[in-house]
Nucleic acid binder design. Sequence first.
DNA 1: CTGTTAGCGCCTTCAC
DNA 2: GTGAAGGCGCTAACAG
Lengths: 326, 326
Amino acid sequence: MTVTIYDVAREAKVSMATVSRVINGTAVVKDDTKRRVLEAISQLGYRPNAVARGLASKRTRTIGVIVPDVSAAFVAEIVRGIEDIATMYDYHIVLANSDGQIPREVSLIGTMWEKQVDGILYMTNALRGEHIEAFEDAQIPVVLCATEDTERRIPSVNIDNRRAGADAANYLLEKGCKRIAFVTSDEGISVIADHRLHGVRRQLDNHNFRVLHVGEGRYEHAIQLLRDEFQTLNIDGLIAASDELGLASVHAIQDSGHSVPEDVRIIAFDNTRLATMVRPELTVIAQPMYDFGAVSMRLLTKMLLDEPVENYTVTLLHNIIERKSS
Amino acid sequence: MTVTIYDVAREAKVSMATVSRVINGTAVVKDDTKRRVLEAISQLGYRPNAVARGLASKRTRTIGVIVPDVSAAFVAEIVRGIEDIATMYDYHIVLANSDGQIPREVSLIGTMWEKQVDGILYMTNALRGEHIEAFEDAQIPVVLCATEDTERRIPSVNIDNRRAGADAANYLLEKGCKRIAFVTSDEGISVIADHRLHGVRRQLDNHNFRVLHVGEGRYEHAIQLLRDEFQTLNIDGLIAASDELGLASVHAIQDSGHSVPEDVRIIAFDNTRLATMVRPELTVIAQPMYDFGAVSMRLLTKMLLDEPVENYTVTLLHNIIERKSS
DNA sequence: CTGTTAGCGCCTTCAC
DNA sequence: GTGAAGGCGCTAACAG
């Protein structure tokens, strides 16, 4: 019932090796026999079995993609970038959510190994020794995507978050802000956010500066905390670690009777679609999210195809997009 | 270098068949030998090769997920639901974006076939004969997720979009609206949207009612079209086919000097996170997005495990959540 | 340019 | 309860 390469060979009156050759273009085949093979293939509706192929060739043309949560806009955009480039190079994506939990992440690396993926694209909040070990056990090429590896042990694609933090701070400084707050998730939840904080702090330490930690960094929670915070408003500038937190800040400020940007200028990180769909539109430090995915996937293909790689730690550029919130 | 089941067998001084048995729990093995096998496994750091397993057993424990675009909030949420249940049943997900283009969709069904996925979860705007054929060729169990198959040829999980449309219309009617508009993407782009339109129309046909088509249904485009439209505002109620269009409508109305909900009451479909992150918060016909994914994946597992299925066409419930825009 | 022959790593009858 | 043997469908030398 399932048509195999043997059936095609018989139908075309050639050996299975020849069929394999025309399918894979792995050697020159006489035009005429090639035609016969192709004919037999479409005659029988033959489809090469990728699993068998994977077993024989030891390459599955599959990439494991491990992310904290696809349903986050930031992540979904990245995954889209990954998938587009993967398609371009004829790879497929096995997607898994880790919820950022180390044990789950490590276990996922293990299953990716079992699945014999050709490579892994990995996104996490904090890279730990456990991960490195798991990667080494699995012996699979890995590229980190939008995640920090301060020691540069593993190829990665990211922006310079410290610098981005500093840029955000300078932006507000140049706007004349004197009392700036940084709204971010709790420390330790995201190294990226922590690095941004470092960058901000570097510029603002001898200014009037405060950090507001708002749990996991979700809108609903943040807006509640911030509303209280802003009752007695004494800031004139605010940096948010994400669009979502930026928006929560805008609303919390408005709810406490003040206005954006008149009383408080706001700049947020990310630039997901949210930033342009709200009023006032958010001034942002834009992240190249799609490119995080696309570039990291491209880097991985280079590694898999043994193409020369100039730089295993690629730093993409962020940029400020000025809109209405500042 | 790669550890195989043979290595484990040798180390544990048993046959590979026995190793296979303890791994898969496919037959009773004496406690003592089981212990030895387990020991050998952890000793050698053995990981079963899922590809080989797939070839031998003809089941890959992999589900193909075909969606128009993961980066859409609505879709991402569904994918998350799928993945959670898949994990629960020890399946993995191969994700592919089709951009809603028929040829690409058909070709993806083909690659899923080659990959020997155990099942397919399929989401598309319009189910066509080409799809049905492709499914039949591939001979793979399929469940449609949040997509309409009016002829019920294929198992599916969805809401009753006609009814939801009618509910939205009735809601505004009850609020006293007399001149209602339905904002939706161009006809033919999404059958779902078209069905909603039917539902709305059924309730409003003998009222003052008009349909505003806004291209692909994206915020940026919609707001421009609608701004012109609302210059001469003569409606007092509006139904939007998505949160995004609802928000575009809100802003367009505001831009033309009117206000929501005072001048125009708005109700939108979907209830993505966007709906509660904007001002005014959107009254919505809420879709159970996560459940679309979760339930359809669960249905698929039932089919794969030959569990009894009462209903191959499951209709989830939508509900109205009243907020500030109406 | 084409055919033959080994595997790839595992599951799955069958015997014992 | 355990072992032996035959595939699963294909790739990849190696001959010719």
